[in-house]
């Protein structure tokens, strides 16, 4: 069984937001809410000044805090490690939104919670998530963490530096940030490397 993960090389991300647009289109995300967004931050002071772009979305944690708090089982984790929401079971109580440390979940106007699915419907067809396929700088890689030949495993192996968000919470995210130009806001955690 594959164990899907994504890596984003921040040294390649130019903040064009093509991934965010592709996600909106592919998943028909309603206005005002987002499966994916770009954090843009000025770092440093002139003349040592640069802009850091960081795409953010559901991190499909290995230990997702949003799943156990769900009272109906609408939030669940697949065998491939995807964290998904079954809208037919969701009562929109907001417990999973409260539990998510990354603000990745939102209330869909249709009356259920929603979020990034790593484009599970595309993966099932053997295709890449829309954001990965769209990225013009190829900063995103996706694949099976347990397959050493998968693009994501290779990217993690070759990266000079790897970070995950809020590792102190023990969620073990499967969205990795590679080669972050600044250390601000990211926490290095080599032990989460799955190689």
């Amino acid at each position: 069984m594959p164990r899907y993960a994504m890596a984003i090389d921040l040294s390649l991300c130019v903040g064009c937001a093509a991934c965010a647009v592709a996600c909106k289109m592919e998943n028909e995300v309603p206005p005002g809410v987002y499966n994916l967004w770009i954090r843009e931050r000025e770092v440093g002071t002139y003349p040592d000044l640069w802009v850091e772009f960081r795409p953010e979305q559901c991190l499909h944690c290995e230990n997702p805090p949003c799943v156990p708090v769900c009272p109906t089982g609408a939030s669940y984790q697949t065998e491939e490690g995807l964290v998904l929401v079954d809208p037919r079971k969701c009562i929109a109580c907001g417990a999973c939104i409260a539990a998510c440390p990354y603000d990745a979940r939102y209330l869909h106007p249709a009356g259920h919670v929603s979020k990034c699915t790593f484009c599970a419907h595309r993966i099932a067809q053997g295709r890449l998530p829309a954001c990965v396929e769209t990225c013009p700088t190829l900063c995103r890689t996706f694949g099976d963490l347990d397959d050493p030949e998968s693009p994501v495993s290779k990217a993690l192996k070759e990266a000079g530096r790897m970070d995950v968000l809020r590792p102190e919470l023990g969620t073990r995210p499967k969205l990795f940030y590679l080669n972050a130009p600044s250390k601000k806001g990211l926490t290095r955690e080599k032990e989460v490397r799955h190689d």
Binding site: G15, A17, A20, V33, Y34, L36, W37, I38, R39, E40, R41, E42, E56, G94, I97, A98, Y102, D103, A104, R105, Y106, L107
Partner: peptide, 19 residues
């Protein structure tokens, strides 16, 4: 300064009815 293209879903999720 931090700006966003799109926004994290960081708003209030429990409103006065939940209170």
């Amino acid at each position: 300064m931090t700006e966003f293209y799109g926004l994290p879903n960081a708003g209030e999720f429990w409103h006065w009815t939940n209170l």
